[in-house]
Design a protein around this nucleic acid. Sequence first.
DNA 1: TCATTGCGGATAACTTTTGTCCGTGATGAT
DNA 2: ATCATCACGGACAAAAGTTATCCGCAATGA
Lengths: 157, 157
Amino acid sequence: MKMTGGVEWGLHCCVVLSSATEPVAAAKLAELHDVSATYLAKQLQLLSRAGLVRSAPGQSGGYLLTRPATEITVLDVVEAIDGPQPAFRCTEVRQRGPMAVPPDRCDTPCPIAAVMDTADRAWRESLRAVTIGAIAATVAATTPGELLDRARVWLSA
Amino acid sequence: MKMTGGVEWGLHCCVVLSSATEPVAAAKLAELHDVSATYLAKQLQLLSRAGLVRSAPGQSGGYLLTRPATEITVLDVVEAIDGPQPAFRCTEVRQRGPMAVPPDRCDTPCPIAAVMDTADRAWRESLRAVTIGAIAATVAATTPGELLDRARVWLSA
DNA sequence: TCATTGCGGATAACTTTTGTCCGTGATGAT
DNA sequence: ATCATCACGGACAAAAGTTATCCGCAATGA
């Protein structure tokens, strides 16, 4: 089981955008993080479709967050890029084979699927509890101020 | 993000094995669940390597649980088949690009990775809290007794 | 002795992820 | 007005992971 790598990129981009006052071009975000520009563009488009970021075309265009970073959860970004589907998908094996239980007796959900679903909810709940703003605050608190300043300058250059 | 389908098969097999007194052949488990016999064999080998099931070669051989089903958690099966790796893998993007923070300043873990790690722990904790025995009990309680009897007969036949 | 069964490796089909490329349209600077 | 810059979307291709299949081997019990 592996999450798409785009999630990591998307989260880093949102953290960067949380301290941006002017639109930041996709190419700039890609260069900053040293990742494929064309592929990152795809992920940003997903964020855009999900309504997490706003895009401005044309010269001096780029991306900005649509709302305060403290109102965007990690789960928002994960679901925007990775999709809302749970990792486990029940294929109803109990309804197959020689001992198949008839569909009309399957009123209760498969217990196995129920367990996986509970775990998935716990996972999502955990991701929902943290915002981009909180992550940005941690970054600000743990990296040397000089580095942060340089980054800010580099971004607007 | 998608979990390997073998996890579902492995869980169903463990539930079946929890009420078996004699070894059950891999081919039989495959037929019972109507899945690929050769591929299921691979998953069972993973369970075997993880020490969850014991295998007996030769005629009238097959698989049995190594311990009571109440002492095997869903997480045990998931990790045996899907591997122990967390879904999110930090690639340390902060150490890349023109604004890379030097490795020696990365004493604290990447906040993004930390969030994902916490969520992963919550997920695993949730799966650890449920045993195969508990699932088997639910199955026993929600399926008609006649069906259970037929299955038991079919298994030993 | 022999059929049955699990084990491990090699292999291939298939799907998903990752990444590129190009044309289009919108925007602002000159 | 024109032009370079940018996001958007689709088509496409490469790489990785999943889902199988097949084979020879070793072990076991009938």
